Computed example of a mutant assay.
Amino acid sequence: MTLLDLWLSHSIPMCLLLQSLVLMALCFPSASMCPKGCICQLDPHLHGLNVTCSQSRLKEIPPTLPVNTVLLRLDHNQIGAVPDQAFHGLRVLRELNLSYNAVETLGEGAFSGIEGTLQVLDLSHNRITSVHKDAFARLKARVIVDDNPWHCDCALQQAISGMAHNHEAAARVLCRSSELHDQEGRPFLAVDTDLCNLAKRTTDYAMLVTMFGWFAMVISYVVYYVRQNQEDARRHLEYLKSLPSKPKKPDEADDISTVV
Rank of each mutant, 00 (worst) to 15 (best):
N68Y: 15
W150N: 02
L72I: 00
A135R: 04
N50M: 13
H76S: 08
L198R: 05
C40V: 03
L58N: 05
R227P: 02
Q41H: 09
V92S: 11
L243H: 00
C40D: 00
A135H: 05
L93N: 05
K248R: 15
P247A: 07
T52N: 14
W150I: 03
M217D: 12
L3H: 07
L96A: 02
S178Q: 07
V218K: 08
P187D: 05
A155R: 13
V92C: 11
E231Y: 12
C152R: 03
Y239D: 08
M14G: 14
P250S: 09
G162K: 12
H88V: 15
A190E: 13
V222N: 03
T69F: 03
V209R: 13
E60G: 13
V209Q: 12
F215Q: 10
M207N: 08
M1P: 08
L156S: 00
V103M: 06
D232M: 10
F136V: 02
P44G: 03
A199M: 07
Q78A: 13
E108M: 12
W7I: 15
R94K: 15
P13G: 07
L240Q: 04
V173D: 00
C154R: 02
T202A: 15
G185T: 00
L123A: 01
P187W: 05
P247S: 03
V70R: 07
K241D: 06
Q78I: 12
A199F: 01
Q157R: 05
A25Y: 14
N101I: 04
L156V: 06
V51N: 03
L71R: 12
M211S: 13
H125D: 03
D182P: 07
L96F: 05
D192W: 10
T117V: 03
L189C: 06
F188T: 13
G37N: 06
I144Y: 09
K140E: 09
R91H: 14
A170T: 10
D255V: 10
S177I: 11
D232L: 13
T193D: 01
A102C: 10
T105H: 11
F87G: 00
D204L: 14
S20W: 15
I61V: 10
E104P: 02
Y224F: 12
L65R: 03
H132W: 03
A233S: 12
E168N: 07
D75W: 02
V226Y: 07
I219V: 13
A216K: 14
L65Y: 00
G116P: 05
V120I: 15
F111G: 01
M217E: 12
T129L: 15
E95T: 06
E60N: 11
L42N: 08
S130W: 10
F188C: 15
S124A: 06
T105E: 06
R94D: 04
V260N: 07
A216C: 10
L3R: 10
A81E: 13
I79V: 07
P247T: 05
L237Q: 13
P63I: 10
V143T: 03
L198T: 05
C154K: 02
M163W: 10
L98V: 01
L174D: 00
Y221W: 14
C152G: 01
A216M: 13
T193L: 05
L49I: 15
I79F: 00
N148E: 00
R142E: 11
